[in-house]
Amino acid sequence: MRTETLDRSRGGMWPWLGQRVTAVVVIVTIMVHLVLTHYVAIGELSYDNIGERLAAGAVLANDVLLLLAVVFHALNGVRMVVLDWGLSGRGARRGFDVFLWVAGIFAVVYGIWALWVWVS
């Protein structure tokens, strides 16, 4: 697919590589996440049920890793779409990148803060 490989020349090499690396991390961790929540515990989701699951360190580590990787992957994906639409001008692109980083860091910190209610 020429369409996808051409992405390299537009968004930069590091975002391109980051998107692939986080894709692999997300595929593994999201499958663990979905099997535990939508297969094993389907119909039982509740505050207490989440607490029981997150009591296992491995599950907590999985979800935190998923949060980190998926927030990067989602916002970098949005960036790819917006650049395709044609965000012109150095300043506009730099400003948009800063906005995405701030939004991403906020989402990750807020997400971990939210999860920690089950840890402490």
């Binding site: 505050y47 989440i50 949060l67 998926v70 927030v71 989602a74 916002l75 994906g77 949005v78 989402a107 807020y110 997400g111 803060w113 939210a114 999860l115 920690w116 209610v117 089950w118």
Partner: peptide, 17 residues
């Protein structure tokens, strides 16, 4: 999925908020 992700983070955070 990107839009859902942020809704999901908000929903789960209600456990603490």
């Amino acid at each position: 999925l990107a839009a859902y992700l942020f809704v999901h983070i908000w929903v789960i955070s209600q456990g603490r908020v």
